[in-house]
Design a protein around this nucleic acid. Structure first.
Lengths: 129, 129
DNA sequence: ATGAGGGTTCCACTCACTGGAAGGTCAAGA
DNA sequence: TCTTGACCTTCCAGTGAGTGGAACCCTCAT
């Protein structure tokens, strides 16, 4: 498939996909006419990278994660170590988001009365774990 | 407190804090000597912004969220609407992270044997919800 | 009074895109 | 066959969110 189709499937702008090729995150084939040709694998990778980026993972994080799946010769201890580090990172993000969720929920419940008084939540802002 | 102390408490580089002042996210007071003076409220905001940024929220998202807490005159329906949109965004992020967590866990369990065969997970990559 | 360790501004750089210009490719219809 | 429009290409410039460094000011202990 061409870049437009891949972009739709991966939910990313074509510009971004070309950029990801530029920096070596993906390596689509080329057709005789010079067009990029994407396989399903490429789309899977793009999809994954797009979502990971939206969750605050860096390009280098993504590169490592993709390499985990790609590098079949890698020692399993190595895989485990990298994967575990990322698992911890993910768990921390989830915990952090849950905290924000609670705070926002509190805001809606406690502070959105018709005549909203001084909001008691600002004082908690930034201190939740 | 001065910017260094605030930076430590908020876990952000001083450079970033100056930048956040530049774009109007925070408005620390100024001492007679020209030094920025941070109150606890400022630190709370910085802390919140730092964590939200790490979770993939844009500066504009942060600006809106901070405004929610700050603008005491805002109509409560408005507050509710914005807060609810952000709650949905947070829930989506949590769901997405959970999916990644599972995939990564699978990778560790299924694909990290000593002689790792063709990993069956790459094919699932990017398709999890 | 001097030196270390803060602080200040400003300017240039990076990273991760994003927009636009200028032009090549291709399928469909007059 | 020609054209039109949607798609693709590269290249270059701009943006958003910082980040590094130079040059200089403030404060406090020795």
């Amino acid at each position: 498939m061409n870049i437009g189709t891949a972009a739709q499937k991966a939910n990313l702008p074509t510009k971004t996909i070309r950029y990801y090729e530029d920096i070596g995150l993906i390596k689509p084939q080329r057709d005789v006419n010079g067009y990029r040709v994407f396989r399903d694998q490429d789309v899977h990778k793009l999809n994954f990278v797009g979502r990971a980026r939206a969750l605050g993972f860096s390009i280098e994080d993504c590169r490592n994660l993709l390499a985990l799946w790609e590098d079949k010769g890698r020692a399993s201890a190595d895989v485990r170590a990298i994967a575990k580090a990322h698992l911890a990172q993910i768990d921390a993000k989830i915990a952090d988001l849950s905290g924000m969720r609670d705070t926002l929920g509190d805001l809606v419940r406690d502070c959105a009365g018709d005549a909203r008084p001084d909001c008691p939540i600002l004082s908690k802002l930034g201190t939740l774990g």
